[in-house]
Design a protein around this nucleic acid. Structure first.
Lengths: 362, 362
DNA sequence: TTGTACGCGTTATCAA
DNA sequence: TTGATAACGCGTACAA
């Protein structure tokens, strides 16, 4: 280790070097940088001068974090490929609240996937099992998420789960999907609609598209999809169900075309499980020469600002996506402080827009 | 320090504990976990059993990283609020390539902003100056980015910049914006267009919207905006220029309405500086009763898949966004290996779609 | 207000 | 194959 310091490849200065150069003890120098104790102005200046001289730019974060027992980093694990995750405005909003909340806490965000590739290949990369993190937030709930959960719990790290089923004792941040979906369904029933269709989020990781049979519906594994669908079916047991491949406008377009294909059977109202899907359905309706909401009503879910929806104001259930993220951040903060953190179920706010109206005479 | 280990709040097991329990030396136990040297099967098993017994889940990443001198984490610094950054499909694509590239390298991605809030408040959060990172990738090029750059360079960490002007010796990954924009302009001139308008990306961090005066154009600070605009103006010196507030469909819609407002002066072709803007312009055109491309041609830039563009295939310059990210990842890998990394300028591929056509007779 | 002493948990090195 | 040893760079009681 104490090999010859190659000239030119000189070892970086440490706080000890700075202290020596400034003629103070290492602890004093340390305090100058951390500000954890008062230091005489003159001393401080001397230390800072020495630091500048030696090119010392502050404590090595690795050593500091070992000493402190904390890294100041929280992992956010996503169940998808990063690209698709950030394509979803709801997730980006949640991430936004989360990063805000964590920033207040003073922690950084390490993006991770639930992919256990680390174990497989010689992958030395940080994972939930090996990253220098103080806590983790899991978003979503695939089967792999459960493995991920194991890994984190085994390390004794605090975990918070957003929109997922995490089991006992793990704070969960989610939404009252059932109630919100019921409200939308009742709104449409109140307007006289009877021939209703539902465009759903994916049923599972396979993301099969198309008209769904009762068997397929029974096999839904994604909790969000199931909750929102069941509530609608409770009000409209005969509703046609079309599953989409994801929460995207173009997926809604595809589903919408399917629904409006046959004028004889087309629905008078479509309940989409996300605003993006709803936007696609509206586009499909207009493409088919149908006016919204005169000929067909369309409701969404999420209450995000859909870029490209034009003049329409979507009837939807507004979910507090940013707040969800923020709540997760708060929960992490509490856990990190050694306190308990309760699970929180947020409610949606029904918003009547311009895309739903009285059922047309058939 | 060696205070009484409170019963119940027992200290986590360390590799030393495991070694002791297994009757081996710490170094042997360490090797069992790292796999860096052959270990007798029996010994290995004994160690693993001891680890399981004690609930030891592997080396503490903090200590390991102190010892190794590397954390396995690379920072990605964005110049915006995370939400807006991930709203941009080009950036998400770039992030995608980047995360892929870094994943191969076996490093995690720490999201950071260029915001120097850390210095201001008692903000203890990780920043480019304090995070336990091995390298950094800066995306974009605000004034703040330069400060960020300083901080990282001072630490002696490798840096790569995407779409930014970083100065000497720093690998830069960017695009030949000028050539691509020229190609688009020439394509339209070849189709006979003379009355052309440009809808640009923001001029600077203020993001002022509207028709731009020569003075405002002269004051553009965003390199990408400037490069793409100058090339067009070289071909169409009289082009009307409208600046947008960001790369969004709805921003394109606003700009488009402005352009199509007055039938007497409306352009026969619009060059948008991004595909999202182009999509908004197309919507504005259709809203004004204009057919694309019969009445007005619209070209974009980026070549991303715009969700919600319907049937149109945009005429655009396809940029290798994912490859850019990947290249940045590769550059980081090279730098981390102690090698040189060259700057790379990617080229766009001109793609003629269905949104541009011959200039209509005026 | 400053200095001393020690340990945070690993891992590279080298010798056995 | 295994073991002893020495850093890695810092923060913080505690004493002065």
């Amino acid at each position: 280790m104490s090999t010859d310091p190659l000239p030119g490849a000189r070892r970086r200065a440490t706080i000890a070097d700075v202290a020596r150069a400034a003629g103070v003890s290492p602890s004093t120098a340390s305090v100058v940088f951390s500000g954890k104790a008062p230091v005489a102005a003159a001393t401080k200046e001397r230390v800072q001068a020495a630091a500048a001289e030696l090119g010392y730019t502050g404590p090595d974060p690795r050593a500091a974090s070992l000493r402190r027992g904390r890294s100041g980093i929280v992992a956010v694990a996503l169940e998808e490929h990063l690209r698709t995750a950030f394509l979803d405005p709801v997730k980006t909003a949640t991430m936004d609240g989360l990063t805000d909340g964590l920033a207040e806490l003073g922690t950084g965000v390490l993006l991770l996937r639930d992919d256990p590739s680390t174990d497989a290949a010689g992958g030395s990369g940080p994972s939930l099992a090996t990253a220098p993190i103080d806590a983790a937030v899991l978003i979503g709930c695939s089967a792999r998420m459960l493995d991920a959960l194991q890994a984190v719990r085994a390390r004794g790290l605090p975990v918070v789960v957003i929109e997922g089923d995490a089991g006992e004792g793990i704070p969960r941040i989610d939404l009252d999907n059932a109630e919100a979906a019921t409200q939308i369904a009742q709104h449409l029933r109140g307007l006289g609609h009877e021939r209703v269709a539902v465009v759903t989020l994916p049923f599972d990781l396979r993301r099969v598209r198309g008209v769904a049979s009762p068997e397929r519906i029974a096999a839904i594994t994604t909790p969000v999809t199931r909750a929102r669908l069941d509530s609608v079916l409770a009000v409209f047991p005969q509703a046609r169900v079309v599953s989409s491949g994801g929460s995207l406008i173009d997926e809604g377009l595809i589903a919408g075309r399917l629904l409006f294909e046959d004028p004889a059977t087309r629905p008078t109202a479509v309940i989409a499980q996300s605003d993006l899907l709803a936007a696609g359905v509206i586009r499909a309706a207009e493409e088919a020469g149908l006016r919204v909401p005169d000929d067909v009503s369309v409701a969404g879910f999420d209450g995000i600002a859909v870029d490209g929806l034009g003049e329409h104001v979507l009837t939807t259930a507004v979910q507090p996506a940013v707040e969800k993220g923020r709540a997760a951040g708060d929960a992490v903060a509490r856990l990190l402080a050694g306190e308990q953190a309760a699970s929180i179920r947020f409610s949606c706010t029904f918003r009547e827009g311009t895309t739903t109206g009285p059922a047309p005479a058939l």
